[in-house]
Design a protein around this nucleic acid. Structure first.
Length: 757
DNA sequence: ATAGGGTTAG
């Protein structure tokens, strides 16, 4: 056991051996008792506190030192940056220089990080100038920090100025609370202004800088080369990288991440390949920069190669790599792999939870997404912005208004309701849950609207058949200078389609290509094809689809096929069906539609042929499903479903209704649908379609006058559409049915779609 | 000094 005195001198010589707060405090006590307030020893203590990120303890000591030496300043600055007090960090840097202390390689990474997180490009450039003048630009750590800074400014779209600073302050209640933040900013600005002029005129050093990098820099304008155009930041990064005399793995990873995050995927991948020549092996940082590229490319083969590399190098349990892998598999539609991976991770953080939730929801696994969300809450992981905007579409698709409202409440309590992503997802959710007024209310409360929020609202109106609201909103958006993208055009075309506005649709369709240079995609074609078909302009629709410059999918043709059914145009139907089977031989819906069309035309032989063909192919119909929310509980039904506890009462209600409906003139449209069962059974089957079970349940389980809201996973059937009109009149209720493409509001025997079914 | 997740879509 060594004496306290030798222990102290050992510790002072090796301050990094101190790993805990109590050890640090012991050292503190030793110094005070044996060395008094000698600033050299106290500075060592400060570096210990700084390494342990103990800002409070550090400040207590720092404030007792009369003229702090460089080591003390460096410790203070590093600790301020770590705790997010970027203004204080920079202000201390200025103070340090004013006190005549020389900054060195240990301080620049911290101040550069502060600039980066404050999004202050100007200040960062001044610092760069200062670094060059001090000859520190060849330092490894400083160079890495510089590259990181320029990469980040690029991905922020260079919007970074001090105006962005209050955002950074959001996470720092103490500083904001004291109202000091802004004063410090001003100080930093004034002082930094001085630095800028002071440093930039120092051309001698600039020239040296220029000569070293003449190849890439061209002209000799020193720092200006770092900021002239939008791509320049990334090339600045590359220049710094190429000039660095010594590079480590962090340097490689920084330049790779910079390229990846700025969309320069091929460059990023090239640099990964180059790493090997420098004896650098990709690590978890490298992989989690590269994986999002393959997610974006939807290249699961390459993604799996990375996964294999991760496993071979023991990196697959890393949370960052794991989250990226989950995301990559999900974006490649291999969401089962995402789930498997998620379960294999040794533990989960907020990001990995978000990845799996988003992965499920994006792949249509809404229940699974909700399950993961609940598990996350149970695991005491606090949801973040991203968690809410990922899960909200699940509520929107499932029409679970009560859940959506609960989440909305949660969002408000978290203070997230001003987030654009979340607000847009709320607008969408309320619209899809049938509450277009609240959707609009949230939309109007938003401070600024981006493309997505406009589109969500326009689409909401379109789904509800409020074409004129949709169109006027679209025009308002254009007037406010927001350039519509392809999705916005999908929304406005859908609005036209649901209201039969053929001329308007053509106007938008042409304007999209001519004025906005957006090539029509499948959805645009589908909307126009849908419009022409529903408007009964079948030949026009056929020609339009045939002339598409991308191969039409089965779903584009399908609307025309159902229109053929409505118009009883068997000849065209056969032509259309043939086109569908050519591109999509497994399209079950098309076989059924065609079979129904044959039935209506009494072409029983063709019906039979189709039926045998389908049976031989082993095709099974995806079950149609409808659901309704009653007293915050979702009740789901499939056709002929007897499993519901109230089935008997539902059945009874349907019988009574049917009797009344028939008295009012309803004739079940059995001849189009079924062929090989008895007439009475036909009627029964038809009248037990899932949406009717749901509607009947709604009628018997809610008080008179309550609006009934039913959702169906596929298009509501023609006979049910007719029947629901009768039902709405008989029970005197408003019935709202949302199917896979739109809302039908039934009231007083009429439907909002004007039978534009 | 470096890394991962988000909203709209017939």
């Amino acid at each position: 056991m060594s004496s306290p005195k030798t222990l102290l001198s050992t510790l002072l010589r090796n301050p990094t051996t101190i790993r805990t707060k109590s050890q640090a405090k012991q050292l503190h006590a030793h110094i005070l008792t044996t060395k008094g307030t000698c600033s050299t020893h106290l500075s060592v203590l400060l570096s210990v506190y700084s390494n342990l990120n103990l800002l409070h303890e550090l400040l207590l000591v720092f404030n007792t030192i009369h003229s702090p030496p460089a080591l003390a300043w460096k410790s203070l600055i590093k600790c301020y940056t770590f705790h997010g007090f970027f203004h204080k960090s920079l202000a201390s840097f200025i103070e340090m220089r004013a006190a005549g202390e020389h900054p060195d390689r240990h301080v620049f990474p911290s101040v550069l990080k502060s600039c980066t997180l404050m999004m202050d490009l100007k200040l960062g450039e001044s610092l760069h100038a200062c670094i060059i003048r001090l000859g520190m630009d060849f330092d490894l750590y400083t160079g890495n920090a510089l590259m990181n800074m320029y990469s980040k400014f690029q991905s922020l779209g260079e919007s970074g100025t001090l105006s962005g600073a209050p955002k950074v302050l959001d996470g720092m209640p103490e500083e904001r609370g004291k109202g000091e933040g802004e004063n410090v900013v001003v100080t930093v600005r004034e002082l930094s202004g001085r630095i800028v002029t002071g440093e930039l005129v120092d051309q001698g050093r600039m020239l040296c800088f220029d000569e070293k990098s003449k190849r890439q820099m061209g002209g000799g304008e020193g720092l200006n080369n770092y900021k002239n155009n939008s791509n320049s930041n990334q090339s600045s990064v590359r220049k710094i990288f190429d000039m660095m005399p010594k590079k480590d793995l962090v340097s490689w990873n920084t330049v790779i991440a910079g390229n990846a995050q700025n969309g320069m995927y091929e460059d990023a991948l090239t640099i990964v390949r180059e790493m090997g020549n420098d004896n650098m092996k990709p690590d978890s940082f490298t992989l989690s920069s590269v994986l999002p590229i393959f997610a974006e490319y939807v290249d699961v083969i390459k993604g799996k190669e990375i996964h294999g590399y991760a496993i071979r190098h023991g990196l697959d349990a890393d949370l960052f790599v794991g989250s990226s892998l989950i995301d990559m598999y999900a974006k490649c539609t291999c969401v089962e792999d995402s789930c498997r991976l998620f379960n294999l991770l040794p533990w989960h953080d907020g990001i990995s939870w978000n990845s799996i939730i988003a992965g499920c929801v994006q792949n249509g696994l809404f229940d699974e997404g909700l399950r993961f969300f609940r598990q996350m809450l149970k695991a005491k992981i606090k949801p973040m912005h991203v968690s809410f905007s990922s899960i909200m579409p699940a509520c929107a698709h499932l029409t679970t208004l009560h859940l959506g409202k609960q989440l909305h409440g949660y969002i408000i309590r978290c203070g997230f309701d001003d987030n654009v992503f979340i607000a847009s997802s709320l607008v969408d959710m309320y619209a899809k849950c049938g509450n277009i007024r609240i959707a609009r209310w949230i939309f109007d409360k938003m401070e600024l609207h981006d493309m997505v929020s406009w589109t969500a609202m326009i689409m909401g109106y379109a789904l509800h058949g409020h074409a004129h609201d949709a169109i006027s909103l679209f025009e308002q958006m254009e007037m406010e200078g927001v350039k519509p993208n392809d999705v916005a055009f999908v929304a406005v075309l859908t609005a036209c389609s649901h209201a039969g506005l053929v001329d308007e649709a053509w106007k938008y369709f042409n304007s999209m290509t001519e004025d906005f240079g957006i090539a029509p995609g499948l959805e645009h074609y589908a909307a126009v094809a849908d419009l022409l078909s529903r408007a009964g302009r079948l030949d026009e629709a056929f020609k339009f689809i045939s002339d598409m410059h991308i191969g039409p999918t089965g779903s584009v043709w399908s609307t025309l096929l159902s229109a053929c059914r409505v118009q009883k145009n068997v000849e065209l139907a056969e032509k259309v069906a043939e086109r569908i089977f050519r591109v999509d031989p497994e399209n079950m819906g098309a076989y059924i539609l065609l079979s129904n069309i044959y039935s209506a035309a009494r072409r029983w032989k063709d019906v039979e042929k189709l039926r045998i063909f389908m049976r031989n192919k082993g095709m099974k119909k995806k079950p149609a499903c409808s659901w309704i929310e009653v007293k915050n509980k979702v009740h789901a039904f499939v056709s002929g479903d007897k499993s519901h506890p109230y089935y008997d009462r539902i059945n009874e209600a349907l019988e009574v209704l049917l009797e009344q409906m028939e008295r009012e003139g309803y004739v079940p449209n059995t001849k189009e649908v079924l062929h090989d069962v008895e007439e009475e059974q036909k009627k029964n089957l038809l009248c037990r379609h899932s949406e009717r079970l749901a509607i009947a349940f709604g009628i018997i389980s809610t008080p008179a006058g309550t609006t009934i809201r039913v959702t169906k996973n596929i298009r509501v059937c023609m006979d049910c559409h007719t029947a629901t009109k009768f039902i709405s009149k008989i029970v005197g209720r408003e019935i709202i049915v949302r199917d896979n493409s739109r809302f039908h509001h039934f009231k007083d025997g009429k439907c909002s779609c004007g039978d534009y079914w």
